[in-house]
Simulated scan of single mutants.
Amino acid sequence: MTEFVTSSRGDRVAYDVRGSGPGLIFVAGAGPSRESDPLTSATAELVAQRGITTIVYDRLGRGESGAEGNIGLDRELAAIAALIEIAGGSAVLCGHSSGGSIALLAAVEGLAVDGLALWETPVSPEREAVEWAAEFERRLDAGDLEGALEYYMKDMPPEWLEGARRSPAYPQMVAQVVTSRADAQSLSWAASGSHAELFGGIRVPVLVMYGEQTYAEMVDAADSLVGAIPDARQKRMPGAGHMWEAEPMAQELAEFVLSVRRT
């Protein structure tokens, strides 16, 4: 059953909680809500069965987490902070795609993060992401939501955008692109300096994962993160692309969360 918590910024965040034990919070990337992403909920259920409290929530402006106005990083971090309290005062964050860059910033900003499990986080030390994010936000602010969505996806495999346009959910995707502002801001931050400078101060364990069927850029990003963060290791997950497979991911996450608790 959906529960709600109000952040320090006044946003009402919808979430599901499962299990009992050390906390694990799933931070979605651009687009998904709990309703549109059953894979994450299924994974959370499997992890919860292994003695862990899991939280899956709707990012601000998505699903049941209604939000108006400029939904930027400050509000997203406040939502995560509120959920960490629900999880028991500290938690591991599992970030998917750009949710991983938001999770990285949460750790850097001093939220009560026990560890980071990052899945295909597309961070790059190249300054191009800074200009890309600025143009994306310019289109949002101008009200060109379809143009903003197309621009957000411009460097993704072209079949992703083509598939989105053919989907009956495309109008909703266009309307909800405003909820990806924080994603763009976090990726811009991750390109604002060297990864050693940005991430070198992270002192919690970090597990960087990618699928064996992924793109070379994701492997390069994983290598860069592991090279920059003192207590980071990477894992190539078999049989997966940009979306993980529930059972092996649940096993990996459970082992990681429990190992973090023991340290």
Rank of each mutant, 00 (worst) to 15 (best):
T2F: 03
V5R: 05
T6H: 03
R9C: 10
G10C: 02
V13G: 01
V13L: 00
D16S: 02
V17C: 01
S20I: 10
L24D: 11
F26D: 05
G29H: 05
A30S: 15
A30L: 10
A30G: 13
R34Q: 13
S36P: 00
P38G: 13
S41I: 09
A42G: 13
T43C: 09
T43P: 03
T43D: 07
E45R: 08
Q49M: 07
R50G: 01
I52M: 10
T54W: 11
L60N: 10
L60V: 02
L60W: 07
E68A: 08
G69N: 03
L73P: 02
A78T: 06
I80P: 11
A87V: 06
A91H: 06
A91V: 08
L93K: 12
G95R: 14
H96L: 10
G99F: 08
A103R: 13
L105T: 14
L105W: 08
A106T: 09
A106D: 12
A107Y: 07
E109G: 05
E109D: 13
G110Q: 07
A112K: 05
A112S: 13
D114E: 14
D114R: 12
L116G: 12
A117D: 01
E126G: 04
R127Y: 00
R127Q: 01
E131H: 02
A134L: 02
E135D: 14
E137C: 10
R138G: 03
A142F: 01
A142I: 00
D144M: 03
D144H: 00
L145K: 06
E146V: 04
E150C: 08
E150R: 13
Y151F: 15
M153Q: 15
P157K: 10
P158S: 15
P158E: 14
E159Q: 15
W160S: 15
W160P: 06
G163P: 06
A164W: 09
R165V: 14
S167C: 11
A175S: 11
V177G: 04
V178A: 14
D183L: 08
D183Q: 11
S186Q: 06
S188W: 00
A191K: 01
H195T: 11
E197V: 07
L198F: 08
L198H: 08
F199M: 00
I202C: 01
P205V: 12
P205I: 09
V208C: 07
E217L: 10
E217V: 07
D223S: 02
S224R: 07
A228S: 12
P230T: 05
A232R: 03
Q234V: 03
Q234L: 01
Q234W: 06
A246S: 15
M249T: 15
A250Q: 07
Q251I: 08
Q251F: 01
E252C: 13
L253W: 06
A254V: 05
V257E: 09
L258K: 14
